[in-house]
Design a protein around this nucleic acid. Structure first.
Lengths: 202, 202
DNA sequence: GAGCGTAGCACTAACGGTTAGCTTTTCGAA
DNA sequence: TTCGAAAAGCTAACCGTTAGTGCTACGCTC
């Protein structure tokens, strides 16, 4: 809770950054799988155990700023203009995020991610955790007052939109189509009228 | 392609079963993480390499019959009665699958899965692969003629329904709620009318 | 039925990510 | 200055997984 970060925390952050930079450099240079943890540690001039005290796994080195995703989504909910409807706000944010990693394939880290199955799997699990945070944020909004299930469903759908649009040939068009569906799902979640779905329980 | 499986294939199947049984026994006895691959191999009296020639990973030992899930879902699409609408057919199948692993927590393997993060993650990635198969089946149905994106979206939503209902306090009620949302999403995917979603692209 | 090709299995040894145990260094506060 | 604690280090392993190399048993053809 100290306002000016002490020398200790600065050094710690510096070490972390040094590791992340070394990892990125090596991954771009030789490819993700061809680089070992011990290589990264050596390049960053730290011990392997130090590396793992900063990053939980090898994959986490790639998604170094992965928490931004989570924060941006929850803030798109909690920080949106008063009375602004939920889904368009989320759509705007997802669109930004998708563009950020498709157009910015100038940033070649996304190429590595796309080409490495282990990283794609890791990203999907990460997004699933993000969906949980998003669901919590949605459920906490007093203007919406959704059930837990509805919140979690919408959150999953929104994350699906990200994943699907990301690998679609035309991300923008895909987002259009998917969010039209999400909007419809949202409408029945927000004001439940009928409850017959065609199959009654026994 | 021989109708009566030869001795060779029977022996192979027997070995596979022996390994699966040994694994299940040990996992139930000591817990998933406390059992090593070498333990399983020893208990089944096979070499470690043999074990990995039958199962791709340690997690795969637990989801030995995981392909059933995929097949049941695709057949729910391809094998449904003529003119039967898609979503109720999928809902029926998902309901069956959810009940199978919630009520059947009598089968304590699901308890182990629920308690082991590594297994939950593995299951989620597996379901994602299943969603791809399901999407293909949906896209191939001539009665529907959906876009690729719409097919994949519906498939993901249906898989989400499974995951969410599985961990909901009342799975049946959750399924009701989620499938009401999916039905709405489906309606706009099947007959697209308006295409304004509240946020226009720049 | 003898011989051949191959699939299944075994064994050893390693690789690569990850962790435990313990010591040393470095900072912050008393 | 001194002391406690956080950060970083080193060694040595654990554990899932794979490569390399044979051997054996089966299925098939002649």
């Amino acid at each position: 809770m100290t306002v000016p970060p002490g020398r200790r925390e600065r050094k710690k952050a510096a070490t972390r950054q040094k590791i992340a930079d070394a990892a990125l450099r090596l991954f771009l240079e030789r490819g993700y799988e061809a680089v070992g943890i011990r290589d990264v540690a050596a390049e960053a001039d730290v011990a392997v155990t130090t590396l793992f005290s900063h990053f939980a796994s090898k994959e986490a080195l790639v998604f170094e700023r992965g928490d931004d995703f989570e924060q941006r989504l929850t803030r798109a909910v909690t920080g949106r203009a008063p009375q602004e409807p939920l889904i368009p706000a989320l759509r705007r944010e997802i669109q930004y995020l998708v563009r950020h990693c498709t157009a910015d394939s100038a940033t070649p880290i996304w190429r590595i991610i796309d080409e490495t199955p282990a990283l794609r799997e890791y990203e999907e699990s990460m997004r699933l955790r993000h969906a949980e945070s998003l669901a919590t944020a949605i459920a906490a909004d007093p203007d919406l007052s959704l059930t837990t299930t509805a919140s979690r469903t919408i959150a999953r759908f929104v994350i699906d939109a990200y994943s699907l649009a990301r690998e679609a040939p035309s991300p923008d068009a895909a987002l259009d189509e998917i969010f039209r569906m999400i909007e419809a799902a949202w409408a029945v979640a927000a004001c439940p009228r009928s409850n017959s779905t065609g199959t009654a329980g026994p």
